[in-house]
């Protein structure tokens, strides 16, 4: 097994006729993901890369049985697209769109909870269960099927870490990019529990960054609920306070949210923290042996 996406994933692409949507729909399909439909209001009845396009998510779900949706629409339309997917009964929504207003996400959350819809993102690279399903913009060729579960607030840093793992012959069960926004869907705690419950996952890599206290809470959760070994890396150890380091959520405000505090929190509960990315494979080998 793996978590969240696998051979049973039937993927719908919202915003499939846009530049990014059409490009990545093709890439995901080429990887082997079961892409069953696309949605683009006003373009229903057409096709992209052989994938049928519908006007509404409801029509697409009705016609194809799609259970997962990935969203590529412009940021100011993203909240509405997430709601549309949830209303139509989609179980898992992955929002790639970057720059979504925070209050839009705050307003969306209660509805998703009520409907039981899982959300990843926004402003995230998506996720992959190697050799089963790629749902996102990650470069599929660097991943290797295996037993390490990985979660990260960053995109390219995830690729860097995966590249290190794969070049050392360490494969992955599922890799999830949770995104860099302050208000986002599934986060460390939910994913830690899913990896803990997944028989295929033997060890977990958590890649965090400055801002907020999600890493500190993850450390506490690991101590209380996770028996599988976890290793971590925190980006932003040299970031100046008060500056937003690219990601909306990556900011040290008034001395809190620093890398130092997060590293301490992990070390306190016995989670090994890599000082530089290239230490990750060795740490994983240590905890898995």
């Amino acid at each position: 097994m793996s978590i969240l996406v696998n051979q049973n994933t039937k993927l719908l692409v919202q915003g499939i006729t846009g530049r990014d949507g059409s490009f990545h729909a093709g890439k995901m399909k080429a990887y082997g993901t079961n892409v069953v439909a696309g949605v683009s209001p006003g373009k229903g009845g057409s096709a992209v890369d052989g994938i049928p396009v519908f006007n509404t998510v409801e029509q697409a779900v009705h016609a194809t049985g799609a259970n997962t949706s990935i969203i590529f629409v412009p940021a100011h339309l993203a909240a509405d697209a997430i709601l549309e997917a949830s209303e139509a009964g989609i179980e898992l929504v992955i929002a790639i769109s970057e720059g979504v207003p925070t209050l839009d996400m705050v307003k969306v959350m209660p509805y998703l909870t009520k409907r039981g819809t899982k959300l990843i993102g926004p402003n995230c690279p998506g996720l992959i269960s190697p050799d089963a399903a790629l749902v996102g913009i990650l470069p599929g060729n660097i991943f290797l099927k295996g037993n390490v579960g990985l979660m990260s607030r960053s995109g390219t840093l995830t690729y860097e870490m995966v590249y290190q793992l794969t070049s050392n012959g360490i494969g992955q069960s599922t890799c999830v990019g949770i995104g860099g926004d302050p208000v986002a869907g599934l986060y460390y705690l939910e994913l830690l529990q899913m990896f803990q419950d997944d028989p295929e996952t033997k060890a977990i890599v958590l890649i965090g960054e400055i801002g907020g206290d999600a890493e500190e809470r993850a450390a506490q959760y690991i101590q209380d609920h996770v028996t599988k070994p976890v290793v971590a890396f925190i980006a932003g150890q040299s970031a100046p306070p008060g500056k937003r380091m690219g990601h909306a959520g990556a900011i040290i405000s008034s001395g809190s949210g620093t890398a130092e505090e997060k590293i301490k929190a992990f070390e306190r509960v016995g989670v090994k923290v890599a000082k530089i990315p290239s230490e990750i494979p060795d740490l994983i080998k240590q905890v898995m042996s």
Binding site: R153, S154, L157, T158, E209, A235, S238, A239
Partner: peptide, 17 residues
């Protein structure tokens, strides 16, 4: 010059390291 915010932060960290 880096692509991606996380990798960019990690690059600065590495230079300092």
């Amino acid at each position: 010059m880096v692509n991606g915010a996380g990798l960019a932060m990690a690059t600065l960290d590495l230079i300092k390291y």
